[in-house]
Design a protein around this nucleic acid. Sequence first.
DNA 1: TGAGATT
Length: 407
Amino acid sequence: CEGGNVKTQMVIAAMETQLSNGPSCNNTTNGPTTISNNCSSPVESGSIEDSKTNLIVNYLPQNMTQEELKSLFGSVGEIESCKLVRDKITGTQFLGRFKLITLGTIKWANIKELGLKLFVLFAGQSLGYGFVNYVDPKDAEKAINTLNGLRLQTKTIKVSYARPSSASIRDANLYVSGLPKTMTQKELEQLFSQYGRIITSRILVDQMTGVSRGVGFIRFDRRIEAEEAIKGLNGQKPPGATEPITVKFANNPSQKTSQALLSQLYQSPNRRYPGPLAQQAQRFRLDNLLNMAYGVKSRFSPMTIDGVTSLAGINIPGHAGTGWCIFVYNLAPDADESILWQMFGPFGAVTNVKVIRDFNTNKCKGFGFVTMTNYDEAAMAIASLNGYRLGDRVLQVSFKTNKTHKA
DNA sequence: TGAGATT
């Protein structure tokens, strides 16, 4: 993770499993027969004896590794243990005959400069905080004195004693909406401070105008304080406000979006486009995700943030007004339109396909175009079909760019 | 509904 690039390690692990009572492999199932959650409860750690040696370090730079953290804090004294907290496995679910393992925070990622929107799972990436447990309490104290407030890249790290982990200090983050646009962060804190100790607060602003979006976050020290603030402030009008505010617990992003992922994957094209390739389409998605998750070298190319940013220099993908134009490269000389319909149809509405042929031989020149109506379906088709082996060829599939326009 | 404060 160097040079400020956004690294996305994995997108999702989707693992095909042979369930003992599951359908056979060539049986088309249209949906989950069983949904189960195998989330194990987190192991709580920390103890009284650690309270003078164990530190929590917040606001670490995104790309800082555990080794770097250890190196930095090791300069103060001998470290008993050190851990950078990273995104982790969040759940296991069954999707028909597929076992779906979600390995982190799943988000729609907007790649604004490319006009792309991708469904990406951020797994294994730093959550921006960590723990350092010293052997000697004196070193812990020294680390607070010398490293708290240290500037690292764009961040100012915070070093403080970690409390023994317990449920009472977890999930104390609140989402607040309906705030008056004129309300400042300080006023927001004043409003909430009556319910407990505020750790952090934030008001979201419009990126263009800098004007408040009327939405903010309040992180309390303790869960119970957050609960009391919801009771006291949800549906209430702040002083001087004309509208009531909404106060609720902030999303646990990975959980919420896992559901979105499930419905996304389960949005089976089978019903609309019956046929042998329809089943493959879903299979492609899962295989593709599996490969991305495990870094398996295979016929599929992971479509990660990195994969996209590596395309920097290519202009906004081709939106022709009538739909999203997709460039398909490395088709065989005898390829025809029907193969494009078959491959892309299962992913959604296809309005046009074209194989580019040599004028004299009438053989395919190795590439073609597909136009799809809906962005999300086009993106999913690209993510799934890029790297797909068709016969003895590995296809390259991407949004059409200006570079290929003349062809 | 952002970054990232309880492993």
